[in-house]
Nucleic acid binder design. Structure first.
Lengths: 334, 334
DNA sequence: TTGAAAGCGCTAACAC
DNA sequence: GTGTTAGCGCTTTCAA
């Protein structure tokens, strides 16, 4: 069925049906209702592709997801994606999943299959953002980059980690150390900076990306007298905790303390509870989506920093509201 | 830029450019190459939307992802999704993420935004499959359903769980019990059936969906003398192991044994290692995608059962090749 | 082998 | 308020 058949059946013209659908132009309310009723009764939906061609709007957004086997173990991307989708649908938009590479993004952009792009992770030195700026298509970065011209939404990881580190140093007393992952991720760097803000020149070991390297980092820090272990992400923390709890690291569980700069369901289940920074990735994706939709609609948008939570005990959640949630500048303060 | 401008610039007609692009119809190889060179030089890509309208093919596939906060913690869906995308792109197809509900799927189907659907999870009694059959659009289910008319791809969870249970009963000796999750998932039922195949009428406790219910189930089974604990999924196993390793369940780690019917990176990190059933969700998604694409192309497709792995020790992976990988019937044997 | 023209299903400007 | 018509960018007959 198409718009023509509807018009024929109703004894009106194609244009009138179109007006009923879009709500644009003059149309008698009664006529409009008649058309809508007919459509509903026959479960007719206008062909999106034809609408797109005519409107010169695809009603699609690209969302980049890396296809690295390790990265897609993380719930983060799917949560962002679902958040974005949830925000997209009420606006008539759909989400297209593309690989997080310039060539893949370029394919959908060049062939005009999307009206905007949500970049879900930025690697240090990646040409992605520069490339997207060149295309002129609206896009938003989930994360942080020093390029001020790029629209971005993120949590203030640095502040969060500074906050958590500061709190725990006061509470626990002891010698802090950080086990960090890949230096190529902007977020890892931000977390490390936050740690340094609060812990000064306390030792940091980079490159903890699997169980072996985590344990090696632990040993290294231990030799330097560290007893307060900050983990840069949940995977690091998980490995550490597993070995600690099983008594496999030659230390009593009470000799050392562990905290994590990124939350996960796995960590939630641990006892004694690990203090964590908690963020809402669903909201992150939703906000990113709203921002690019606004850009598409021609509205200016400012960078956004979302609220994070510091959780120390399950019953005691301290919300750190980083000043409302709209800021100028990715690192802006209220 | 569009096809017309290319034609103008080259002093040929629109139709010839189109023939160069599609490769259909007669065209002089030299002319064709000239067009392709020009396109490459100017980074011109034909407008997909216009192609779609003309071809009456959208070059899009819908992939359903539930938006349940708990479910999207699992790496499973994202892995399937990325697998599907990887298979889709070389064929010129893109993946549209939609909510796993009839109304959402119906929206993209009715508005003709997709050429096929990949359903990533089937709930017992869900009207989704019936609805899709009515639309006549090609679709495939990742998972298993008794509806023989539905094209499906899955791992033989029942056989895998039977296999693992059988192996461990022989190896460990003792009294087995199963802690299972939600009965509403087809896959949970399949696993429980596999367990029963090998363990007879050993006790099963359903409804373990969070830490509290897992521990309650553990206690319940413990009272019935169980010392070999089979966990229906990785979340259950994670909760159990965390509490076990921390010595919080009043049992010595050597009194009880634990195995899991679903693998996860978290479990991989545990020592002593937990025997698990391992499946490749990336491959699952890729196969599902290939199957709908084949259907779209008009080729008949049979249901597929993929290989699974039983992992007992990290160094000792026993591959259970369930007879090549193409079968007739979702439960077919070689 | 190529050009011209109709058509995919819809929107929007223009008449009436 | 409604009908008519010219596109949107492409593919594909049909002639030449």
């Amino acid at each position: 069925m198409n718009i023509n058949e509807v018009a024929l059946a109703l004894g009106i013209s194609k244009g009138t049906v179109s007006r009923a659908i879009t709500g644009n132009g003059r149309i008698a309310p009664a006529t409009r209702q008649m058309v809508l009723d007919y459509m509903a009764a026959h479960n007719f939906h206008p062909n999106t592709i034809a609408q797109s061609l005519s409107h010169r709007k695809t009603m699609n957004l690209a969302f980049t997801v890396p296809d690295d086997r390790d990265l897609i173990q993380l719930p983060f991307f799917l949560q962002c994606l679902v958040g974005a989708r949830t925000a997209a649908h009420p606006n008539g938009y759909d989400i297209l999943v593309v690989n997080n590479t310039v060539s893949d993004v370029d394919r959908v952009v060049a062939s005009q299959k999307v009206d905007g792009v949500i970049v879900s992770r930025n690697l240090v030195g990646s040409p992605m953002l520069d490339h997207l700026e060149k295309t002129g298509l609206p896009f938003v970065l989930i994360g942080t980059t020093p390029q001020r011209s790029v629209l971005q939404v993120d949590h203030d990881h640095r502040a969060a980690c500074r906050e958590l580190t500061g709190m725990l140093l006061e509470l626990w007393q002891g010698k802090p150390g950080l086990i960090a992952g890949a230096r190529s991720h902007m977020v890892s760097r931000a977390r490390a900076r936050g740690f340094q803000d609060a812990a000064g020149d306390a030792p940091i070991v980079w490159g903890a990306v699997d169980e072996k390297s985590v344990l090696a980092a632990f040993t290294q820090l231990r030799e330097r007298g560290v007893d307060l272990f900050f983990c840069e992400d949940d995977m690091i923390c998980g490995h550490l905790e597993n070995n600690l709890q099983a008594g496999r690291l030659g230390v009593d569980g009470h000799d050392v303390r562990v905290a994590s700069f990124y939350d996960s369901p796995m960590l939630e289940a641990l006892t004694p509870e690990v203090p964590v920074v908690h963020i809402d990735a669903l909201e992150l994706g939703a906000r990113a989506c709203e921002m690019v939709l606004a850009r598409i609609a021609g509205h200016e948008q400012n960078n956004v920093l979302l609220q994070y939570e510091i959780k120390t005990r399950r019953t005691d959640r301290r919300v750190i509201a980083d000043g409302g949630d709209r800021h100028r500048g990715s690192k802006g303060k209220k």
